[in-house]
């Protein structure tokens, strides 16, 4: 059994979610190959070769992989799919965009965002915003799967896989990147942070969000997150959103401040190890998942908390 893991990277380095995806591949068991498709991606390929459990890194280096468009990547993957019984990618915006396209071209189902592996063909995945867990069995010859990164530990390093260059696939010329605005932050990445300080509509304005939460996050070396309401109100950019349609996180500590705890928000953070909720409404649903709840006015509590740390 051979497994192809699609590496998510920025040409220079691997994205953290790739490590978790390799862990899931190791759990399935078999010969693990990593595909690095990029432009001038030697550094990423070299990093890939050190991942524990990976036997081979296959590198396709060509200008038309610069933008990582699904159309060109899917064509490359399908052209190199022979011999693999599994194709895996992280369930990030990258993997979710790409893998269904691959599956359809192979005429197989795609299994989204698995959180558990019961046997080589039986997987567990959340449905209904995590309010239910489905165990599904695949009858397809090739299993195309996205892996929820928070459900699998990052794989180790210290491996020494062989690195093989493969010919580039076609440039389909369907899409062009016009512009990419990535949010710059000195803080840890949401998906990988140990501590997350997350704010909701209760913070009232962008100014308050930043004035209250930044000092707290500084003290805790935390990433900042937000509810959808906070993003919609323009407090922070879209990539801060935690939830069913935002990011799924599972830090050691998640502090929800002025967030009511709608099921769509809980879907993104309910697997955090410790949850703290600060909310003035004692009946807010967030308290049902919080390990420690503090009822009161966040405008008073948050500065106190920051000062106490």
């Amino acid at each position: 059994m051979a497994i192809l893991v699609i590496a998510e990277h920025d040409h220079a380095a691997l994205r953290a979610a790739t490590f978790n995806t390799v862990s899931a591949a190791r759990k399935i068991g078999g010969d693990i190959h990593l595909l690095v498709a990029g432009t001038g991606c030697t550094a990423a390929a070299q990093a890939a070769a050190t991942l524990a459990g990976v036997s081979k890194v296959r590198v396709a280096d060509a200008p038309h992989y610069a933008d990582q468009t699904a159309e060109n990547l899917a064509a490359l993957i399908v052209g190199n799919a022979a011999g693999y019984t599994y194709i895996l990618a992280p369930a990030t915006s990258f993997g979710k965009n790409l893998l269904p396209r691959v599956a359809a071209l192979l005429d197989v189902a795609q299994i989204s965002e698995i959180v558990g592996i019961e046997s080589p063909d039986i997987f567990v995945r959340p449905i209904y915003a995590g309010n239910a867990l489905a165990t599904v069995q695949s009858a397809d010859a090739v299993k195309v799967i996205t892996v929820r990164p928070t459900a699998f530990d990052a794989c180790g390093q210290g491996g020494s896989a062989t690195v093989e260059n493969i010919p580039a696939g076609p440039d389909l010329g369907l899409t062009q990147l016009v512009n990419r605005e990535l949010t710059q932050s000195v803080r840890p990445e949401l998906g990988a942070a140990q501590v997350i300080v997350s704010g909701g509509r209760g913070l009232v304005s962008a100014a308050h969000y930043h004035a209250l939460l930044e000092p707290l996050a500084d003290k805790l070396n935390a990433a900042l997150g937000a509810s959808r309401a906070a993003v919609d109100a323009g407090f922070v950019p879209n990539n801060y959103q935690v939830g069913q349609t935002g990011k799924v996180v599972a830090p050691q500590l998640y502090i929800a401040i002025g967030i009511s705890g709608a099921i769509q928000h809980l879907a993104g953070m309910r697997d955090s190890k410790v949850i703290v909720a600060i909310n003035k409404d004692a009946d807010a649903p967030i308290f049902q998942v919080a390990d420690y709840g503090l009822v009161g006015d966040l405008f008073k509590i948050v500065p106190e908390l920051t000062a106490a740390l």
Binding site: N131, Q137, L294
Partner: peptide, 26 residues
Amino acid sequence: RLTILKVVEPPRRQTGVKVADVAELV
């Protein structure tokens, strides 16, 4: 192509506690 073998509720989180103030929380 996929057969659903079972659908279950996710494990429930243990009910937490309410703390009185910031000092107790910390």
